[in-house]
Amino acid sequence: MTALGRPGTRGLVALAAIMAILPALLPNDFLLGVATLVGINAIVCVGLNLLIGYAGQISLGHAGFFALGAYASTILVGEFGWPPLAALVAGAVGVALLAVMIARPIMKLKGHYLAMGTLGMGVVISIVLDQEVELTGGPDGMPVDAFTLFGWEPAGEMAWYWIVSGLLLVSVWLALNLINSPIGRALRAVHGSEVAAAVAGVDVARYKVRVFVVSTVFASIAGSVFAHYSGFITPSEASFLHSIELVTMVVLGGLASIFGAVVGAAILTTLPQLLAFLHDFEMLVFGAILIGTMIFMRKGLVPTLAGLARRWRR
C-alpha cells in the first residue's frame, strides 16, 4: 500500500487545503484568532481521542496537563530566562514523566481507574497552580513572554495561525501513523475483545500507558503554544470544567476518529466565541450535548455521518 493509499491521507490533504484557504475567507483578525484557538484545542483533542477512542480510557484531568505545559513555558522563560523552545520541550518531557508515573500502576488494574486518577491529578494541579502565588502568580494568573526562536518572533494573528495550523497537521499525521500501524490495530483489537487481544500477545496495559503519555504530551505542547499566543495564563486553564470541555469536544466529534476530534474542537470552540449571549447557558448546552450524543449518536458526529454517507452510496 503506497503512502497515498493509506487510510486518512485524503483527510489530511483536505485538512491542509482547508487550513490554507481559511485566512482568505475570514474577514477579520478576531475570526482568525478563533481559528487559531480551534487549532490549539484540536491538537489536544487529537491526542485525547487516541486515549478515549482507541485505548478506551477516559482522562478527566487533561486540562491539568495543558496547564502544566503552559506554566512550564511561562515560568521557565519568564523567571529563568530559558529559550522558549527549550521550555516547551522541557514542559513536554516533564508532563510525559508525570504521565508515566501515574499511569503505569493504574493501567494494570481492571476498570476505570484512570478516570479517577486523572481526576485527582487534574484537581491537585489546579489547586497547586492556584496556591503557589510566588511561583505562578496565583488565581490572578501571570503574563507570558513572547515566543522567540533565534531572534525571530511571530508577529500578529496570521503568523500564529500558520504556526498552529502546521502543528495541527503534524499532530494529525502522527496520530494517523499510529492508528495505521500494528500498534493501532492492536488497540482496535482491544476494543473488539480485550481477552482475545491479550491471548494474541497484545500487552494491553503497556499500550494504554503509551497512548496516555502521547496524549498528555500533545496537551502539554498545545498548552505551551497557547501561553505564548495568548500572552497571559491563569490557573483556570487546569480547571475540571476545562477538562470536561475537552472530553465533550472529543465525544461530540467522534470517538476513534481523528478528524472527528478536529471537528468537535472546531464546533465547541467557535460556538461560545461567536454566540456571546450563550455564555450563561454554556454549561447547560455542553451538558446537553454530552448526554444527547451518548444516547442518540454514540459514535459521534464524524463516524455517524461517514456511516450515513456509506449507506447512501449503496
Binding site: 502522527l174 499510529l178 493501532g184 490495530r185 482496535r188 487481544a197 502521547v214
Partner: peptide, 26 residues
C-alpha cells in the same frame, strides 16, 4: 470492529514491528 484479514493479522502481533516511536513517525 475489524475486517477478517485484520483479525488474522492481530494474531501475528508478536511478529509485527512494534516499535512505538517508529509507528508514530510512520
Amino acid at each position: 470492529n475489524m475486517t477478517a484479514v485484520e483479525n488474522v493479522m492481530v494474531g501475528r502481533h508478536l511478529r509485527a514491528d512494534r516499535g512505538f516511536l517508529a509507528a508514530l513517525l510512520g
